[in-house]
């Protein structure tokens, strides 16, 4: 008990010696953790959105109003015979009207204005591999029964590849900043050890165990790392909450991310920051105490 209070007391005494370095260290850890938190949850949001898309409709083939029932049946059968196609749904004009009313139920004036006759019937195609949408477009183009083809694939592929690029870039930056934090911690510990060199010498003479001498250093590194990460994670949760609540985000993108995922991410980051602090102090102490 007495030892623990000694360690904690000394951890804070040490940190008060170099307040600027401590702030720099905490900030570097904060930025690094924040990058990791936001990009990983951002990616999870994109994946959640696109996974719904993956299981949903990949290509919509709007049919010409003049197409007969037999003609659309034939078209549907030939689509279903393609190996890359998993499922084809026929959507009649009535169903399209219903869907429109549901989608725009918040805007009754719009629903009033629209002439539902212009809504075409369609075939909605679900593919085994969403990126095969180009094959379907190639095959259907020029078919007289087809009025228009829309594939969401291109935009989504672009979104996915953009997300991956962002995640990669953010990861690189997070690692660089984490490295800076690492160097900062080592330097803080060296400065502390230098300031306390006489005290450490005396402790060794008296017969203090090396754990006892090291613990304040280890605590300091872990504390700084943990503080930075905790603030970053707090900010991250705030940002996600804000995006969920903000109307802009709602209209462009659905912020769907499970609390379970966020909790795991948070715990993972906290644990990593403890390990990070521990490792940094391990290296720092070896350099600082010349052991």
């Amino acid at each position: 008990m007495n030892k623990l209070s000694y360690v904690i007391k000394n951890t804070f005494i040490n940190m008060r010696r170099n307040p600027l370095l401590v702030i720099a260290t905490v900030l570097a850890v904060l930025v690094s953790s924040f990058l990791v938190f936001t990009t990983l949850s951002g990616r999870a949001v994109v994946q959640n959105n696109t996974s719904r898309w993956q299981n949903g409709v990949h290509v919509v083939i709007f049919l010409d109003d003049r197409v007969t029932t037999t003609a659309h049946k034939q078209l549907q059968e030939s689509l279903e015979s393609y190996p890359e196609v998993r499922m084809v749904d026929y959507f009649s004009k009535d169903e399209a009207t219903e869907e429109f009313k549901i989608l725009f139920k918040d805007q009754p004036e719009l629903v009033q204005e629209v002439d539902f006759e212009i809504l075409p019937s369609s075939l909605r195609v679900n593919l085994n591999n969403p990126s095969d949408y180009t094959l379907i477009i190639e095959r259907m183009e020029g078919n007289p029964a087809v009025k228009e083809i829309r594939a969401s694939g291109e935009a989504i592929e672009r979104l996915l590849s953009l997300t991956n690029t962002l995640v990669l870039a953010a990861t690189v930056f997070a690692i660089l900043i984490a490295f800076a934090a690492f160097i900062l911690i080592i330097n803080t510990l060296r400065l502390t050890a230098f300031a306390k060199r006489k005290e450490i010498k005396v402790m060794k003479l008296i017969g203090a165990s090396s754990t006892y001498i090291r613990l304040p250093f280890i605590f300091e590194a872990i504390f700084e790392s943990l503080l930075g990460t905790s603030i970053a994670v707090g900010l991250g949760w705030g940002v996600i909450q804000y995006s969920k609540d903000s109307l802009v985000a709602e209209s462009i993108f659905d912020i769907t991310i499970s609390d379970g995922y966020l909790i795991n991410l948070t715990l993972g980051l906290i644990l990593s920051s403890v390990l990070f602090g521990f490792f940094a102090s391990y290296v720092g102490i070896r350099k600082a105490l010349n052991e």
Binding site: K204, L205, I206, G207, S209, S210
Partner: peptide
């Protein structure tokens, strides 16, 4: 190395410079 503290606890050491904490 790890046994050095055990040895030092059985010894009292007064160095040439008193090495007091100022």
């Amino acid at each position: 190395k790890w046994k050095i503290p055990i040895l030092r606890r059985k010894l009292g050491i007064v160095t040439q410079e008193p090495q007091l904490l100022e």
